[in-house]
Design a protein around this nucleic acid. Sequence first.
DNA 1: GCCGTGACTATACATCGGTATAGTCTGCTT
DNA 2: AAGCAGACTATACCGATGTATAGTCACGGC
Lengths: 206, 206
Amino acid sequence: MTTVPDPEDLTARARIRDAAMRHIGEYGFERATIRGIAETAGVSLGLVRHHFGSKEALREACDEHLVKIIHKLHEDAARDPRAGLNPVAVMGPYQPYLARALTEGWAAPLFDEMVDIGERWIAEADKSRTDPPDVDARSRSALIAAMALSVTVLRRHVERGLGADLTSPEGQAKLMRVMLDVYSHPLLSLEEAAEARKALDRGRNT
Amino acid sequence: MTTVPDPEDLTARARIRDAAMRHIGEYGFERATIRGIAETAGVSLGLVRHHFGSKEALREACDEHLVKIIHKLHEDAARDPRAGLNPVAVMGPYQPYLARALTEGWAAPLFDEMVDIGERWIAEADKSRTDPPDVDARSRSALIAAMALSVTVLRRHVERGLGADLTSPEGQAKLMRVMLDVYSHPLLSLEEAAEARKALDRGRNT
DNA sequence: GCCGTGACTATACATCGGTATAGTCTGCTT
DNA sequence: AAGCAGACTATACCGATGTATAGTCACGGC
């Protein structure tokens, strides 16, 4: 799944890009070295430069590729909405790179697009909501996007907490069960929330 | 808030440690340089080594200090549970460092302790829950901890989404409002969750 | 058949940054 | 007064890594 390469793949350029995504995903951009990437791709140091020019440009190429992948996944998810719940399963091998991109500061457009998608979804759901929302749909979408991505970003910690390897089918099934339970039970009752809001209005912020 | 220094502070050692936490928080461990930290602390490169021995050891000292801070905050939060909702406000200036620690792979005990605390809280809440939980309290606590920390870890993205600066009181109030709304409304109905679980049981995992 | 272009390699270069060492100054103890 | 300890500085060292350059090889068009 999601490992289907572009037709243009198999080329050295594609191999380098894939190796870069793996290295950056595993070590982060700083610790990933062009030499290491070249070795993994089975090419010389110079060829990386020949194709991409600089380490920074290589990263940008990886980003573009990620965006491409996400767009394709988004189309797929439009057909089966439930499949999109589990980001670890969805992103597959590109998930570590995504996590780095989000935490090392260069994937803003990507996150924003996720917020866009969520916002439309939420606006739809608001129509059948009984109590009026206290805040705009976009803000809620941003928080929910962050929450959904937290599994990706804090994956190692979540794995420890669940006692399961999230690359395995069993681990992913477990994660889905946990998510279903948590997502279907509010952390706060409406009354508690209303009370906290009132306290906030009184100007007591902490 | 949370800026009250230890009595032992004001010493060069403390200044170096604080500078290190700021630099690592801002740039990450790799990109943070001992030279830069020394300059910020207003001391020489050599003094950093004199006090801490190595960059790695300096990081460990920062970790220990973070743990100390978290413990103190935890005691405070025990008195006023609601204050603990907002991790950005709670962690104050140490929040960027915490985010780095969590995403760059070295803060496992810290996360686990948060899961511990949450687990006890959830076990308590389970007593008054009508439907039986599908998964153990610890797994749910881990996911919820990750979700709660997502604001800290993806802070820049959340800020863009909310259109607010989370260091400002207004931004924090806005975040609180968003959290209260989202936390008090389940993302999935019990029926949807039950149905998804059934689909999972049929062995169709994706 | 030649030549040019682009994929690819080998190697040199320069900088950055962690580490190591030698030395200075201040203050305290005896 | 002597001397020792610890805080602190200046500077040298060296490996790692991104960047740059020169050169080789294969292939396709004129």
